[in-house]
Lab assay of single mutants.
Amino acid sequence: YWITCCPTCDVDINTWVPFYSTELNKPAMIYCSHGDGHWVHAQCMDLAERTLIHLSAGSNKYYCNEHVEIARALHTP
C-alpha cells in the first residue's frame, strides 16, 4: 500500500488520511490491467468513490491514467 504508484503519487505513510469511506487504515488500491498489471492508489487516479466501488465489485478491467490511452489505441480498429 505504501508505494509510489505513479509519477504524481502523493500517498505517504506519514501523512496519509482516509479519503474514501471504505478506507480505514490503508489507502484504496485498484489493479491496472495493462501488461503484467500493477497496483495504483484510487486517490492518485482521481477515481470517484462510486466508480471505485463499482470497479471493486465487478470483474471489469481498469487501466490507470498512464495506460488508458495505450489500452484505447489497442482496442480501436
Rank of each mutant, 00 (worst) to 15 (best):
E49I: 02
H75Y: 06
C44P: 00
L52M: 09
T8P: 07
I53K: 11
I70N: 07
V11M: 05
D36P: 12
V40R: 01
W39E: 07
D46R: 13
C64W: 00
E69L: 06
I70V: 11
I70R: 13
L52A: 07
L24Q: 09
H75Q: 14
L24Y: 04
Y20T: 01
C64K: 01
T51E: 11
N65H: 12
V68G: 12
T8I: 01
N25F: 03
K26Y: 03
H54V: 12
G37K: 01
L55Y: 11
A48R: 13
Y63C: 15
Y1V: 12
P7A: 02
S21E: 15
W16I: 08
P27A: 01
A28S: 11
R50H: 13
V11Y: 02
W39V: 06
P77A: 08
T51M: 08
E49W: 04
A57P: 11
L24H: 02
S56F: 10
H75V: 09
T8C: 15
Y63K: 12
V17G: 01
H67V: 03
F19G: 07
N60Q: 09
H75K: 12
T4M: 06
S59Q: 05
L55T: 07
D46W: 06
I3S: 08
I3G: 11
K61N: 08
D10H: 11
T8N: 14
K26N: 11
D10V: 15
N25T: 10
D36T: 02
H34A: 11
Y20G: 04
H34Q: 14
P27I: 01
A71I: 12
H38Y: 02
G37D: 00
I70C: 15
N60V: 11
W2H: 08
R72Q: 09
T4H: 05
I70G: 10
T76N: 08
S59F: 09
C6K: 04
S21R: 08
H34N: 09
A57Y: 08
H38R: 02
D36A: 06
C9L: 01
L24I: 07
Q43V: 08
E49T: 03
A42Y: 02
A57V: 07
I53S: 14
C32Q: 00
M45W: 03
A71C: 11
H75N: 14
H75D: 15
M45H: 14
H34S: 11
G37S: 01
W2Y: 14
I53Q: 15
I13V: 03
A57L: 07
A73L: 14
K61W: 07
I3F: 14
E66P: 05
S56D: 11
W2F: 13
I3A: 10
E66K: 09
Y20Q: 02
A48W: 11
H67S: 06
N25W: 11
C64G: 00
N65Q: 06
E49V: 05
H67Q: 03
L24P: 02
F19W: 14
E66F: 06
N60C: 06
D36K: 03
M29T: 03
Y31W: 06
I3Y: 06
D12N: 12
I53G: 12
V17W: 08
N60L: 12
V68E: 03
V40G: 01
K61Q: 15
G58Y: 08
Y31S: 06
C64F: 00
E23K: 02
A28Q: 09
E49C: 06
C9S: 01
N25Y: 03
T8D: 04
L24V: 09
V40C: 06
T15M: 12
A42T: 01
H54Q: 05
A71Y: 15
P27H: 01
I30N: 12
S33L: 09
V40H: 00
L55A: 08
Y31R: 11
M45N: 11
L47E: 04
D12W: 04
C64D: 00
A28F: 06
A28T: 05
Y63R: 10
S59P: 14
D36Q: 14
I3W: 07
A48Q: 15
A42G: 08
T51G: 10
V17I: 07
W16G: 02
S56E: 14
V68D: 11
A48G: 09
I53M: 13
E23F: 00
P18I: 00
A57G: 09
V11W: 06
C32T: 00
A48S: 10
G58S: 11
V17N: 01
P77G: 07
G35E: 14
L55M: 11
A57K: 08
T4L: 10
F19R: 07
G35V: 06
S56Y: 14
I3N: 10
T76Q: 12
I70L: 13
C64Q: 01
C44T: 02
G35I: 09
F19L: 11
R50K: 13
A42Q: 02
L24C: 13
